[in-house]
Design a protein around this nucleic acid. Structure first.
Lengths: 225, 225
DNA sequence: GTTCTCCAGTCCGTATGCAAGATACAGGAA
DNA sequence: TTCCTGTATCTTGCATACGGACTGGAGAAC
């Protein structure tokens, strides 16, 4: 028998979850904004049940906060949150890279280069959203090739917040995107050469710089966007 | 005003989730067993809605597997699963211990000693279930004091599986519990003395030994418990 | 005896209805 | 004016109803 596999149609819950996730990550909604199950179900053209279930899942990803009998809100990170998230993220990524390098070096390298290309294209087109998306893909590569599903799951659990912070709190600082691109290039080079220590330090610098930028934006209160 | 706070009654979802989690972790159900939303809702005396939501949460913790239109099943780990889980777990715990030691050494130490005491009590009483629970508490201490909520969340995401494996796959090997107790004692000592490298190696040995034991049980197929 | 087909039973996915808690605001008392 | 209080209206929590999809077995055709 040839391998005939049909993909199951997505459930409404999955569709709603994805749509809401994109809306939050792509900054179509403001941080802290109130969401009503009923209003969402109406806007999306489905009943409250799948909306409710999708919101519950998003809560577990930290993208929304559900307060019993009060309402559901887009997450609103504190400075401390962001700090802890960055530390955690560095920890996961450095571990994943380690595994990648020993287990699937070539495949990972190819995928990283692909994502890098997408970033360059987005930069050339001047699309900040596409750049942010490609950036997200770049970091996801580590987990797709690390060979440990638990590591990937853990990352998926925070990747939404990471991606949302990227779009909500990144300010177009002078030369920022260039610095970011340069660091990604350095990471690929270090990875290709197997220089794990260098890779670690670049990644550390990369994430910590992002953290400082986010923290600044949070402090100055320029958080709506 | 005196600080009068009433504790909110837990939602049905939370109650059901906890109950089912306990049932799985404490081996009241067999691995791979079929669960029907309707049967569960009847057995628990609630409607399908909260049961369904609780099952969705348990799926994200890896304790059940939901197959669309077919049914829900208690998770059934493969040997590979267990291996990856152990690697991941070691990674999380070693990181958490590192943070504990630098941030909340005294508090963590006290809590570890408390859990150790509970383990000794359980061992004296010959209660394997209580011992397993105290063991679980011991390892949770690392995350309660590490000061990073994301690290704790990630652990909570797998702690159910870890605990379930402990009860389902642990066989009462000759002298096993003694070895386990000894290793926990060593961990506390190394932690108290601030010997991080030793701590790491003990933890590594501890987790990997558990892994071998689980893998053996899985291979021999003596998995129903 | 083997294989195909049909059907009944069971499961989940979704929609909807009702109850209870939270909030905001208007209106009355001091 | 200020403060309290009752109520209208919002929210979510949970129960229930219905329909589609899947599964397993009985019976017919070969």
């Amino acid at each position: 028998m040839p391998d005939l596999k049909v993909e199951q149609p997505k459930s409404l819950v999955a569709i709603v979850e994805e749509r809401l996730r994109d809306a939050i990550v792509d900054a179509e909604m403001r941080l802290g904004e109130t969401l009503s199950e009923e209003a969402l179900s109406e806007a999306l053209g489905v009943s409250r049940t799948p909306v409710r279930e999708a919101l519950a899942r998003l809560q577990l990803q930290g993208l929304v906060t559900i307060v019993p009998k009060k309402g559901t809100f887009v997450f609103a990170p504190t400075e401390e949150d962001v700090s802890e998230l960055c530390v955690f993220r560095y920890m996961l990524e450095t571990q994943a890279l380690r595994e990648c390098m020993s287990k699937a070096r070539e495949a990972a390298l190819a995928a990283m280069k692909g994502a890098l290309l997408a970033m360059e294209t987005a930069q050339a087109n001047g699309s900040r959203r596409d750049y942010a998306r490609a950036d997200t893909v770049f970091h996801e590569v580590f987990f797709q090739h690390c060979g440990n599903r638990y590591l990937g799951n853990a990352y998926r659990g925070v990747s939404g917040r990471v991606a949302a912070l990227r779009t909500h709190l990144s300010v177009p600082l002078e030369g920022e995107q260039e610095r970011s691109m340069a660091e990604h290039h350095q990471m690929v080079e270090a990875f290709a050469a197997g220089r794990l220590a260098d890779l670690d330090s670049i990644l550390h610098r990369h994430i910590m710089r992002a953290w400082h930028a986010y923290a600044d934006v949070l402090r100055t209160g320029a958080v709506r966007g």
